[in-house]
């Protein structure tokens, strides 16, 4: 563990908790892409299947459990509890255009052709594009609430910190995982446009509005 990965995980956890709290306390999921949250639940499910078979540390196991529980709780709030506030008309990104190619790629490019490894690879590739429905929704509605912007900033920042973690691990342990690194770079690049708008607008208290 290094400080970059720790801060990255905490930023990820903060994002997940922040979104869950926003939906719960406002009793509304307006402006939130249910599809992205479904994809994140799928990412955690396929990545943490080793939850019961391999124990790394209390931290590792507890974070995985928290991520999975929060992901499903968020999906439940969006599609069940507060589904009346779910914005069908703007959450129209074709998620199958993400899942199918990513599924195929996971079969073709992986470290080991075993079910657990292919599912882990699928979750790595899927996570890199899972935010697209949310970014698409914001570009359609033309704006995002500030809390949603903070959520996206923390979520995008977590994988950016992981990239620094991978650089650190490469130089200190000689460890690197090309699949995780390439997918992590794609994931972070998808946020660049948003990061620019967030830094130049939201910080000064303006509402974030992506070019439609």
């Amino acid at each position: 563990m290094n400080v970059f990965r720790l801060v990255g995980d905490l930023s990820h956890l903060l994002a997940i908790i922040m979104l869950l709290k926003k939906i719960w306390s406002s009793r509304s999921c307006a402006g939130i892409s249910g599809k992205s949250q479904l994809l994140f639940a799928l990412v955690f499910t396929t990545r943490y299947l080793d939850l019961f078979t391999s124990f790394i540390s209390v931290y590792n196991t507890s974070m995985k459990v928290i991520y999975i529980l929060c992901a499903y709780a968020t999906v439940y709030l969006i599609y069940v509890k507060f589904k009346a506030t779910y914005d069908h008309n703007h959450d129209t990104f074709r998620a199958e255009f993400l899942v199918v190619p990513v599924g195929g790629l996971a079969f073709l490019v992986n470290h080991d052709f075993t079910p657990l490894e292919i599912l882990w690879t699928f979750s790595i590739y899927l996570e890199s594009v899972a935010i697209m429905p949310q970014l698409f929704m914001i570009s359609k509605t033309g704006e995002a609430e500030s809390i949603t912007s903070h959520y996206l900033f923390c979520l995008g920042g977590y994988r950016a910190l992981y990239i620094i973690n991978w650089l650190y691990r490469f130089y200190s342990e000689g460890f690197f995982d090309l699949i995780a690194i390439v997918a992590g770079c794609v994931q972070t690049i998808l946020y660049c446009d948003f990061f620019y708008l967030y830094i130049t607008k939201v910080i000064y208290g303006q509402k974030l509005s992506l070019p439609a």
């Binding site: 995980d9 342990e173 699949i179 995780a180």
Partner: peptide, 10 residues
């Protein structure tokens, strides 16, 4: 292998 260590990451 080196990749196995990746699984210690979230």
């Amino acid at each position: 292998g080196a990749e196995d260590q990746a699984k210690d990451e979230l």
